[in-house]
Design a protein around this nucleic acid. Structure first.
Lengths: 265, 265
DNA sequence: CCTTGCACCTCACGTAACGTGAGGAATTAC
DNA sequence: GTAATTCCTCACGTTACGTGAGGTGCAAGG
């Protein structure tokens, strides 16, 4: 190992004084090895002006002094806290915000980010559970489920969704098919009756109204808020839901059946 | 608005049949507007081969058919779940892993990521609390605190750290200074005694041992595990901690004081 | 027919923090 | 003296687009 005193100091110094001098500067590889960073990272810090070694050999090799090492340790500390290099530089150069503010800002950002990730994780978890109850796992099915669940997230509160999820997990797939078939059977009948101007209070409509009510009751668990949310969702998302869920009642049908319900009492 | 049937179909079709034909394809802007995506995103999807419109006008304008729109919806669904475009393409093209596996993998990744973020948030929170108890908030202080706390994370369990944090928050800053001053007073004495080969059982060392024990007791709250962890940490991180905490006992001192403790009984 | 204005096209750079070579000079080791 | 490291400087790749720049297509008004 050489020492680089020759071009650090301009005059010659006897060996007896060498020991009290500043320690020899480090080359990148050495600094990298001792600090656990990569050489490329140090190059990068130099490039962006975050950590420029105070010395270079005449041939261009970087030499890091004690002060540089200290700065690097500061950089490492702040990076450990997830602070971007840009802000690390601003902090160390004394420009911009105070440490307190930077930390507070970062905490806020982090919490926001974590909340997003958590919501995503919940969605994925629900999706996974759904995939495990259905044996057909085609991409189309997958996308349909995603579409429907994301649409539902817009109209239901978190607790309502949990209620629905709990109930769904306690229901057999066979039964879910039955329910869908029932809707697919009922809705065309209602549509026909409406276009034929059948009186909502007529006996055949009242019979249908009974089945309708039972189906709604079963899905909503009797919660009128969930029923309202479902109605709102159908009104807004009808066309796109139709592709995925099969037949879906329109707003006019709700009105029509409302009359039937009134006549039932 | 034109229709692009001219180059979609090769033969002329009477108007009466036009209505039963496939709907007119959409241009990028229209598709973007209806799906809430940006035009650039659609261009990007085209570039990477994720969604290539089946048609183009002779002048090069993109035309999206029904099938393209469906594919886009699938892409949107999967992206909503945070799946990278690369895997979305593999999924939709039927190559690679099954939906189940992809979802499971992503859940695992997400949880890992969330755990990391949470640990980071905890660190930042602790840092912020610390910053609020100390009024001097220089960058150097900040980095020192980070260094010390990250070093501590390596040697203490989570519960131990919480205990320490709780206790620290109930202690005044003034008192912390007193403690530090006490250490700074005691340690040189011990060092001197050791180099002078003073008997650990001598009365002056026993007096120091008492103070030493009290200080350790106070910091560790009497928990021998915490005491052990502190000792291990000092042994491993001594030199770097010394810069930040002031005087720190060496392993030899622990041994020496151990003899004094034995003589105290 | 010509212009105006809007939607569209294709580059191509920028983002964060480096990883990963490529090709060549300098240093160190034997 | 030569071989093996270590160092240097480009420069592209990573994610999912944003943001112009500069040029064409196309429907409508004068």
């Amino acid at each position: 190992m050489r020492n680089y005193t020759a071009f650090v100091a301009t005059n010659t110094i006897p060996n007896s004084q060498m020991k009290t001098m500043t320690p020899p500067p480090w080359k990148v590889g050495e600094l990298a090895g001792r600090t656990g960073m990569s050489v490329r990272a140090l190059h990068h810090y130099d490039e962006i002006g975050l950590l420029t070694p105070t010395l270079r050999t005449p041939s261009g090799h970087r030499l890091y002094q004690q002060s540089d090492v200290e700065r690097l340790q500061q950089v490492q500390s702040l990076r450990l806290m997830g602070i971007p290099l840009d802000e690390v530089r601003r902090l160390l150069d004394g420009a911009g915000l105070s440490p307190r503010e930077v930390i507070a800002l970062h905490i806020a950002k982090l919490h926001e980010h974590i909340a997003l990730q958590n919501r995503l994780a919940e969605r994925l978890q629900g999706l996974a559970e759904h995939l495990d109850t259905v044996e057909s796992a085609s991409i189309d099915d997958l996308c349909q489920i995603i579409q429907v669940t994301t649409a539902m997230e817009k109209y239901f509160t978190t607790e309502q969704l949990e209620v629905l999820r709990d109930r769904r997990s306690s229901i057999t797939e066979e039964h879910m098919h039955e329910v869908r078939d029932s809707w697919n059977e009922i809705i065309p009948k209602v549509r026909n009756a409406m276009s034929a101007n059948v009186d909502p209070a007529s006996p055949e409509i009242l019979a249908i109204a009974k089945r309708w009510k039972a189906l709604v009751e079963e899905f909503t668990g009797g919660d009128p808020k969930i029923a309202m949310a479902v109605k709102t969702m159908y009104e807004h998302e009808g066309p796109s839901l139709q592709q995925h869920l099969g037949e879906v009642p329109t707003q006019e049908m709700f009105v029509y059946m409302g009359k039937a319900f009134a006549a039932m009492k």
